[in-house]
Nucleic acid binder design. Structure first.
Length: 228
DNA sequence: ATGACGATTTACT
DNA sequence: GTAAATCGTCATA
């Protein structure tokens, strides 16, 4: 399948975050490790963070700090932040320079490097549970299925090795983290964003997008479960 | 300097 | 369903 990269891709994602969030479904995210090994996956779930008026956005009200500086650097920049004391989340910035709009990548369908992803996820999970001490027999038996490797914003960062060092990189250049667009995905589902309950009326906006029918999303849309 | 909290994940009842 | 883990960031003082 034809991959759209570089400046052509930048033009396609530049604009309102809701539009960019839809366009990014189906795009391929590629991580090139320092060893040269490749990890990649198709984006199957995104959320739009519209800009300074969006109460759920880190840039709400024009807030601009060291943490969210990348959001202001223009379309194609990656915004990686650390949260809950243990997880990273990855966004693709889609606004003009100075306008902090971005798309949170919430889930990908693993394509390349699946066994490396599994190692990272299982090691990480063990470390979280035991604080670095030897794992219990039960923990050692823990085996993650493919569908559990990247079905959440923190999980995919752990699997792909995305951390603070990749904050601010241009994902439309040939670097350690690359974005390759494909033809638009037709079958989309939408729902409300997850984990933003304190955002008032903005929490009700349906700014979350998934590839319809994908089994690799963090949670299905369209049901009355928490977060919908 | 301090305290509250988070665009999450996991385990447990 | 609920709670714990775990710490950088930010607003307040």
């Amino acid at each position: 399948m034809t991959r759209i990269v570089g400046e052509e891709a930048r033009r396609l994602i530049l604009g309102p975050a809701d539009k960019a969030a839809r366009r990014l479904i189906g795009a391929v995210l590629v991580r090139v490790l320092p060893t040269g090994e490749r990890l990649s996956g198709r984006i199957v779930e995104t959320e739009a963070y519209l800009g300074v008026r969006d109460r759920a956005s880190h840039a709400f009200g024009g807030r601009r700090t060291a943490r969210n500086e990348s959001m202001y650097r223009g379309a194609g920049v990656g915004y990686v932040y650390f949260t809950y004391g243990m997880h990273f989340c990855f966004n693709v910035v889609c606004g003009e320079v100075g306008e902090p709009a971005a798309v949170l990548v919430r889930a990908i369908e693993p394509l390349e490097g699946i066994e490396l992803m599994r190692e990272r996820r299982e090691l990480g999970a063990r470390r979280t549970r035991t604080g670095g001490t030897p794992a219990s027999p039960a923990a050692e038996k823990k085996a993650l299925r493919d569908v559990e490797l990247c079905n959440g914003p923190g999980k995919l960062c752990q699997a792909m090795g995305i951390d603070r060092e990749l904050d601010g990189v241009d994902v439309l250049s040939d670097g350690a983290l690359r974005l390759e667009l494909t033809a638009p995905v037709r079958r989309l589902g939408r729902g409300t964003r997850i984990g933003i309950d304190s955002a008032g009326a903005w929490a009700a906006r349906r700014l979350r997008w998934v590839e319809a029918g994908s089994g690799f999303v963090s949670r299905p849309v369209g049901k009355a479960s928490a977060g919908e």
